[in-house]
Design a protein around this nucleic acid. Structure first.
Lengths: 175, 175, 175, 175
DNA sequence: AATGAATGAGGGTTCATTCAT
DNA sequence: AATGAATGAACCCTCATTCAT
């Protein structure tokens, strides 16, 4: 992985996740990456290949982000950490999270496999907390996560911490 | 409004809401509408004008869809009807709902004005039901609605009625 | 000749002579003439037909403008009146004059027949005034007229009367 | 400057100056230049950029053409060389000269700055020759030059040398 | 006579991609 | 590995023109 390759991936991640895959031209990526347009194709075959590379990276990155959640024993912590996801501190994971969301809408790309560990961790947590329908609770929470992500992308979520607190209370968790 | 004009709007609504605004070319719209491409521009000036026309129609349509919710006295009914929204029976309203969602992601287009009546009706309902934070409950529900809409678009929501039932129970509403 | 026909011709004359034949679309003409676009084609077959009609009118109009010059006995007056041509008072003749000039450049349309009377009148005048090469003087003057017309069109002739006076002096004519 | 870039400029110069800017499509330029249409936009951004590039070149070229006139000491030579301008031997300068003329009519593009050196040289020459109104003489000559250029473009000037001789005589210059 | 809907060809321009260097 | 020239298809849009009313 050369420096330029990384530059391309970074530029593409930023642009794809902010403006969308279709709305981002390869020339724009090249310009933002300070790289010749041809190089993109040398390294990633075509635009879709670039996206795939990004997705592969994204999956790896997010998997590691999920690790602390999956390994968490305290069910309340599992939920709290999950709710923190879209606000994730690390710039890079944040970018992948947004990218995956954008793709879900733009390309109907939905990676079940990736989310499965999180899914299972949540279901386990809800079971431990003796919720009546752990699977449905999980489904609901993950789906709410999408809603939050969209609000963040649109910059219409202007009461973050308050809203997070509210959700926590819903699950009888105090911070 | 001529027949062909309607054909154009219908084709555009379908394509924009299914495949996205950017991914849909005007020539594709024309083909689907069985119309010459030039006609689109005669009637709607440009591609964006076509989108605007669609949005205008969509807003009017959705406003009328909101009427029964806004006029509803029973707060539980308000919530139930709101949860029904993304599954709306009328094909046409369904299309606009999906379009607005797609645009929210693709173009960061978010029409607060349109949603305000629904927002207020929900807040009033949650107040009547003595929820502690009606505004936050509303925010959460509307945001969940987005999540549901996305699932529907991606055809990954395969337990509709069960999930809806689950949400209702969350609000202590029995069907 | 209906009112609308006249409106079309007027709009076309104005636009063709100001912005050029190519740069003027039939739709623009229709709009300026407050007329449906189709009507242009009903009356003039096609865009070129509209131009031809205009040219026909223009020739007639300019012929009548030439009459006082051709009939003028005093050779100095012939020259003076000729020099007045591009500044012609009547709006309408002015328009045709500009149109013909524009076409000469844009379409290489050059109507020798039209100019012949003026040509002959000038040659006769220069002969009377005992110029050595009346034909060449005529050629020069007519060609200078083109230069003046261009200056007027470009609004770069800002010393009209002074310059006209200067030309008159060249021919030993005092005003 | 690649070969193809030059081919594009050459084709554009030829077509713009012969048929006009508006009447020349970029696809026509591409065809004449034996080049893909897209390449025009890669190198010159857009059609207007192509024109600008041509103008820039043209100005440089014509400036060098003016040099021998400006440096000329003998006032009669200054005038003679000026009159030679539209008949300029070098193909390339001839093209630019015609282009600038066409643009003056089509786009009202008139570059005063470019002509200033010639203007001043002529005024100085007329002063040396003790003409009464050197500025007006200059204005007249330059304007006549436009008339001549138009005749050349329309191929209606069929007594070139005779006419040039005639003009020289007007300025009491013998060849 | 007059309108305005409708068309199809062509306009300028952008795009993903390939190729020579 | 990297560039930047070059391509051709597709894009949005305008044009002159026709047709039904």
């Amino acid at each position: 992985m050369t420096i330029k390759q990384t530059q391309i991936l970074e530029a593409a991640l930023h642009l794809f996740s902010e403006e969308g895959y279709h709305a981002t031209s390869t020339s724009k990526v090249a310009k933002h990456a300070n790289v010749s347009e041809g190089l993109i194709f040398r390294h990633f075959q075509n635009k879709e290949g670039l996206l795939s590379a990004l997705l592969e990276e994204g999956k790896q990155c997010l998997k590691t982000v999920f690790v602390p959640i999956v390994n968490e024993e305290d069910p309340k912590q599992v939920i709290q950490k999950t709710l923190d996801l879209p606000f994730e501190i690390t710039e890079i994971a944040h970018g992948y999270w947004k990218l995956l969301f954008k793709l879900k809408v733009e390309q109907r790309y939905d990676d079940r496999e990736l989310m499965k560990p999180l899914d299972q961790a949540l279901t386990k947590a809800f079971m431990k907390l003796r919720f009546r329908s752990p699977e449905l609770e999980t489904q609901n929470l993950i789906l709410t996560l999408d809603g939050i992500t969209m609000s963040i992308l649109n910059e219409t979520l202007n009461n973050e911490s308050e809203f997070k607190q509210f959700l926590m209370n819903k699950y009888h968790i105090e911070i």
